[in-house]
Design a protein around this nucleic acid. Structure first.
Length: 218
DNA sequence: GGAGAAATAT
DNA sequence: TATATTTCTC
C-alpha cells in the first residue's frame, strides 16, 4: 500500500494476532446486556434462586467503568495504572461499509451524558494499531475537504469514540504527515500529501525518532 | 458551535 | 510519551 498503512509488514505481526484474537470474540448480538438478568425471574423462583438485583443503566455504566479500569491495567502489562480505554467493537476494516456513516444507537454523546450524571471522567483512549488504521483509512477516504473530526468520528463508527478523541489524534497525525513530507523523497503517498497544502521545511535528519506499537505517526 | 493550531495538563 | 484539555483565532 504505502508507507503509512504498511506498518504491519509482511509477517505475522501483533496486528495480525490482535485481529485473530478479536475474530474469536463473541459478537455484540451474542451477548446478554448487563442490564438484563441472566436468569429469568420465573426460572429463579422455580429453583429457589435468589433473583439478581435489578440493574439500572447507571449501575451497568459503573460496572463497566470498573471493568475497563481492571482490563486496561492488564493490557498495560502492569507497568502503570492509568484509566485507559480500548474500544472493543472493532471489526475487520474489510467489512466496513464506507457508504453508510450510520449514526445509530451508539452515540458517544450518550455515554458522555452518563459520565456527567455519574460525575466521572471518561477513560483515556488507547489508539491501538487497529484503531489507528481505521482512522487513517477513513481520513484517506474522506479526503482533505471532509476529513474533519466530526466526520471522521462518524465514519469510524467506533462506540465511545468522541469528537475530542479524534480531534486530538488528528492534530498529531497532521504533524506526522508534515514531518514525513519534509523527511523523505518517497514520502509522496496519497496519505502523505493529503494535508500538505504548504511546503514543509525540511527538518534536519532526526532519524525516525523511534517507533512504538509497531508504527510511528508522531 | 466547530475546526484547527498551539500551549498546557494529566 | 500518549492523550486530553484549554485557549485562542478563524
Amino acid at each position: 500500500m504505502n508507507m503509512i498503512t504498511d506498518y504491519t509488514g509482511g509477517g505475522y505481526s501483533d496486528d495480525d494476532r490482535i485481529s485473530d484474537w478479536e475474530h474469536g470474540l463473541p459478537n455484540v448480538s451474542d451477548l446478554t446486556p448487563l442490564s438484563q438478568p441472566l436468569i429469568p425471574p420465573e426460572l429463579a423462583s422455580a429453583f429457589s434462586i435468589t433473583p439478581e438485583p435489578y440493574r439500572t443503566n447507571l449501575d451497568v455504566a459503573r460496572a463497566s467503568q470498573r471493568t475497563m479500569s481492571t482490563l486496561k491495567g492488564q493490557y498495560n502489562n502492569n507497568t502503570n495504572n492509568n484509566n485507559n480505554y480500548i474500544p472493543n467493537n472493532l471489526h475487520s476494516f474489510d467489512d466496513f461499509d464506507f457508504s453508510d456513516p450510520n449514526t445509530d444507537g451508539s452515540d458517544p454523546r450518550k455515554s458522555r451524558k452518563i459520565d456527567a450524571e455519574m460525575g466521572t471522567k471518561r477513560a483515556r483512549l488507547v489508539w491501538t494499531p487497529q484503531l489507528h488504521k481505521r482512522f487513517v483509512e477513513v481520513v484517506a477516504h474522506l479526503g482533505i475537504k471532509n476529513a474533519v473530526p466530526k466526520r471522521i468520528m462518524e465514519m469510524m463508527n467506533v462506540e465511545g469514540l468522541s469528537r475530542e478523541n479524534v480531534a486530538s489524534h488528528l492534530q498529531k497525525y497532521r504533524l506526522y504527515l508534515k514531518r514525513m513530507q519534509g523527511l523523505s523523497t518517497d514520502g509522496s503517498s496519497v496519505y502523505d500529501q493529503l494535508f500538505a497544502s504548504t511546503p514543509v521545511p525540511r527538518e534536519a535528519s532526526k532519524g525516525n525518532g523511534g517507533m512504538y506499537h509497531g508504527y510511528d505517526y508522531r
